[in-house]
Design a protein around this nucleic acid. Sequence first.
DNA 1: GCAAATGTCGCCGTTTGA
DNA 2: CGGATCAAACGGCGACAT
Length: 391
Amino acid sequence: MNILPRRIAHLDMDAFYASVELLRYPELRGLPVVIGGRRCDQPELLADGSRRFARLRDYVGRGVVTTSTYEARALGVFSGMGVMKAAQLAPEAILLPVDFDAYRRYSRLFKAAVAEIAPEIEDRGIDEIYIDLSGLPGDTLELAQRIKQAVKDATGLSCSIGISPNKLLSKICSDLEKPDGLTLLDESDIPQRIWPLPVRKINGIGPKAGEKLAALGIATIGQLANAEPALLQDNFGRSYAEWLHEASHGIDQRPVVTHSEPKSISRETTFERDLHPRRDRAALSAVFTALCSQVAADLQRKGYLGRTIGIKLRFEDFRTVTRDLTLPGPTADPAVIRRAAGECLRRVPLEQKLRLLGVRASALSSSSAPQAITASPQGELPLSATARCQR
DNA sequence: GCAAATGTCGCCGTTTGA
DNA sequence: CGGATCAAACGGCGACAT
């Protein structure tokens, strides 16, 4: 049994996508650069070897900002913002298209570099990880500096690291000295360094809970720590209220999870313009089938079968609905997925134009296991043995 | 008019099977 | 066989995250 406090690091790459792009286009360093949009022009190579980049002001479409450099953020351009809106704030900023393949390569590079030093890593997406340093010998600060240097050597990129006894606090403090930050803290630092922060800094308090807390006069984590348990209970329910209270006191026992399997695989797309369910039927149907094929291909490539097929629609007013259908057996067959998704679609009343369509496979199993359902020649939904018996 | 893509999780009401 | 009960699965949906 081990009663020593854990040493948990949270490592977050600094402006990751933008920084990867700057490795490619060093002449953009120091400029406001925005990554995002959809299908916008690649930089054009000029005769003299220099490049001409697209400006934000030239963009037309409904894309969002995925990342921006710190220079762009200084102009008020942040992730999730519509590119059109960003263009009003920073018309001269450079706009680059997203290149996920490149980011994935650098993601693998930095994670491998960290793993050389500290193998207990929890993946948290493309640009961040938790690292459990508890079992490693050596001074925490030195360890962290070595990790930062290893990431730099492997990728040329900087990152920020927070280290504390748990994931919750480490996630908060990796952000405190960004970029190129290194922040260590323990329980005794909570009143000074955590309590003054806005509640939204807690991973798990999003826009909705943040608004609700604000309405209760709770703006900082310290105020949350001092809130009446009954008040929280009445407004958030027992379980979430308990979690809020613990989080505000920096309590978090979650382990660093080094292995996990995906729970769902999905594809979705937002149309250039909203599509009418009947007038644009052909176009919708083509997109729908393509999404099903992509999900099927993703399943096959990754070696999974899905037993529950779901769809997601977003209407012109941004309302979102989902429908699911669980099949008698798992599949990665595009035709089976298409038919199941079609069944889901029939359950949605289509009284508005659509802006987004998505297809998802969940209840995943490994495809190395047996019994996949494939398309039957007649094109009817496959029935399970039990369903057949009930006939 | 404008707000991506992909994924996880929790809650809740309903259905289903024992 | 009807009814009561309970757990698991399902389906919908919202919140949250990167």
